[in-house]
Design a binder for these strands. Structure first.
Lengths: 326, 326
DNA sequence: CTGAAAGCGCTTACAG
DNA sequence: CTGAAAGCGCTTACAG
C-alpha cells in the first residue's frame, strides 16, 4: 500500500514510483523529481520483504558456523561479512554447534527463499547430513569440506602445513614431536594428522604421540598435554591444531614445571592475533582467515549469479609465524 | 503457486492446505491426512518470504555489534542466539564496527520489515545516531546503552564493579592503582573510570594514572601500560577494562622486566574463558555474558509481542574471579 | 516516457 | 469443516 501512497501523492502510477526507486533510466526528469519529493515528504520506506518475494532474491546469505566463540571462526565471519557487504548482501548467522536439529531449522530459510545461498563452516562429518537439506542450492564450504560433496570449497593445504611444521620442529633438533589434535569429526583433523605421520615416517623418527582434545578450549588443550606427558618418554615438542588448544598446552606445560621452549616447544595453528601477546609468544601456522571468508562469498555469489558455473575448490596459502615458544 | 500445487494434488483449496500447514484445529482428520500426503509427495517447501509478508512478522532479529572478534561480544551473541532459537527466532548479525554507514544499511532491514526488532551492542556514542533510524521499532541495548534513549537495556553496574575492584586492590596493599581504559565513546568507559576515581578519592589514595587504549586489542593494552610506566612513580597495580587489554598489559609488564603480581598486580574485565589458562592466570571481573544476551532477547520479544510494554532497564550481577595475577 | 494489470506465494476474515 | 476472494507491497512485461 505504501508505494501506492507515494504514487497518489506524486500523481503518478505505482509502476513509475517503482522505476524511480530502482533508478530505471527511462523516467522524465521532472516526473522523477515529483516522485522523489513525494517519497521524502511521506518518509516512505520500501518493504523489502515484498520486493524479495517479487524478485525472488533476498540478497541475504546464511552462515552456518560450529562455534562463533572460537576466534578463528569469528575472524572468518568478519571476512565473510565485509565481502558480503561490499557486494550488497547481508548475512544471517547460525551458531549451529554442529547440531543437526538446529541446522535444519536454519536451512529451512534456504528452502524458504529467505536466503540466496549458504556458507558452512561445520565439521565435515555433519556436512553429509546437511547436503540433503541444501539440495542444489548455492553452497560454499569454508575451512571444512567434504571432498565427496559437489559444492565449492575454500580451505588451506592442511596436510602440507602439518608436514612442514613437523619438519621445522625436527630441524630445530626435536625428536619426540607430539600432536594435540581435535576430535576426528573434522576433516582438518584427519588431514593434519596424516601430514604429521607422513613427515615423521619420512624423517625416520620413531616416536609418536597423539592426544585428542574433547573440544576446542584451553582446558581441553591442557588435558591433552597431560595425557602426552604420561608417556614413558614425554614429548619435547607439540603441534596443536588450534591456537586455543596451544594456550592450554603451554599452560599445562608450565604448570608441570617444564620450560617453554627449552623442555617443550609448542606450535599452534590458526594465527589468532592474541598469540603474539602470550608469555611466551606462540609460534603458529597462520591461516588467511579474513580471505577464507571473503573468498567464500565470492565463490558463492558466482554460483548464485550463474547457477551453472562450475564447482571450485580453492586452497589458500598459509604461513608459519615463528615466535619464542619454539 | 506451490501451495496451489499441493491443493490440486490433495483435491482441496489453498486455504485448507494453509490450515494444515499452520496446524489449525478445525480440519477433519482425513482431509488433513490427504493434504499431508500431498505435501510429502510433492516435497513441498513453504515460501517463508510470502508468509512473512502476509503475516507482517519475520521472526528474525537484527544484532548490531561493534566487533565480533572480541570474545566478550561473541559470547554474548551465543546467548542471544540460543535464546532466540528457543523462542522460534533467527538472528541477522551485523558487525558494524560502529560505522554509521554500515549501520544504516542494516537498519534498512528494520524499516523494510525484514526483521522484527534489533539488539545493539554498539558504542553508546553512536546510539543517538541510530535512534533516528530505529524510530519506535522494538529495540534493546545490550551491554552498552544511552540513558537518554527510551529503549530497554541490559548491562551491569560498571561503576560499582570498578569501585569494588579498586577497593580490592587497595586491600591487597596496592597504593598506585592505574586504569587502562578504552576510548571514551563507550559508556562503560565513563562509568568504570568514574567508579575508579570515586573509590580512590574515598580511600584517600592520591596517585592517579589512566591510559586510553586505541582499540580493544592486546597490542593496544601493551601500549597503554607503557604509557603508565613512564610516569615518575609507576603503578603497582592496573585494572584493565577488558581481558583482551589485560593480556597486553601483562605481556608488556613482563617484557619490561616486572613480575606479575609481585611488582604489578593486573585485573581484567569480562571473564573470558581463556583468562584462566594464561601465565599467570588472570584475575578478572566476570560479566554474565551469556545472560546479557539471553535477557536482551527476552526483553526484545516482550516489546515485539506487546509494543506498549514499558521500557525495562536491567542490571545483571557481576562477580570477581580471583587468580594469580593479583 | 508512463500506466493498467498480472502475479510473487502465502493467510485470513467471511460465507456457507 | 471448507472454499472463494481479497490482500500483504512490491516489480515487470505489455501496451500505448
Amino acid at each position: 500500500m505504501s508505494i501506492e501512497k507515494v504514487a497518489l501523492l506524486a500523481g503518478v502510477s505505482k509502476a513509475t514510483v517503482s522505476r524511480v526507486l530502482n533508478a530505471h533510466p527511462g523516467v522524465k526528469a521532472d516526473t522523477r523529481d515529483r516522485v522523489l519529493a513525494a517519497i521524502s515528504a511521506s518518509e516512505y520506506q520500501p518493504n523489502l520483504l515484498a520486493r524479495q518475494l517479487r524478485t525472488a532474491q533476498s540478497h541475504m546469505l546464511l552462515v552456518l558456523i560450529s562455534d562463533i566463540t572460537n576466534p578463528f571462526c569469528s575472524r572468518v565471519v568478519q571476512g565473510i561479512e565485509a565481502e558480503a557487504e561490499a557486494q550488497g548482501y547481508h548475512i544471517l548467522l547460525c551458531n549451529s554447534a554442529s547440531q543437526r536439529r538446529r541446522e535444519s531449522a536454519w536451512l529451512g530459510l534456504l528452502t524458504g527463499k529467505v536466503v540466496d545461498g549458504v556458507i558452512t563452516m561445520d565439521a565435515a562429518s555433519t556436512l553429509q547430513d546437511i547436503a540433503a537439506l541444501i539440495g542444489d542450492a548455492p553452497w560454499v564450504q569454508c575451512a571444512e569440506y567434504d571432498p565427496a560433496i559437489a559444492a565449492s570449497s575454500v580451505a588451506i593445504d592442511n596436510r602440507g602445513a602439518a608436514r612442514e611444521t613437523v619438519r621445522y620442529l625436527a630441524g630445530k633438533g626435536r625428536r619426540r614431536i607430539g600432536l594435540v589434535n581435535s576430535d576426528m569429526r573434522y576433516l582438518y583433523s584427519h588431514q593434519r594428522e596424516a601430514g604429521y605421520r607422513e613427515q615423521l615416517e619420512q624423517l625416520g623418527l620413531p616416536w609418536r604421540g597423539v592426544a585428542y582434545a574433547e573440544e576446542i578450549s584451553c582446558e581441553a588443550g591442557s588435558q591433552a598435554l597431560r595425557q602426552l606427558l604420561q608417556q614413558p618418554e614425554p614429548p619435547d615438542a607439540v603441534l596443536a591444531v588450534s591456537d586455543v588448544l596451544a594456550v592450554g598446552v603451554v599452560h599445562a606445560a608450565l604448570e608441570a614445571g617444564l620450560r617453554v621452549p627449552e623442555d617443550l616447544a609448542v606450535v599452534g595453528f590458526d594465527g589468532i592475533p592474541f598469540t603474539r601477546s602470550l608469555n611466551p609468544p606462540l609460534t603458529t601456522v597462520e591461516q588467511p582467515m579474513y580471505q577464507l571468508g571473503a573468498r567464500s562469498v565470492q565463490l558463492l555469489l558466482q554460483r548464485i549469479r550463474r547457477p551453472t558455473s562450475p564447482v571450485v575448490r580453492d586452497l589458500l596459502p598459509w604461513k608459519r609465524v615463528e615466535r619464542a615458544s619454539s
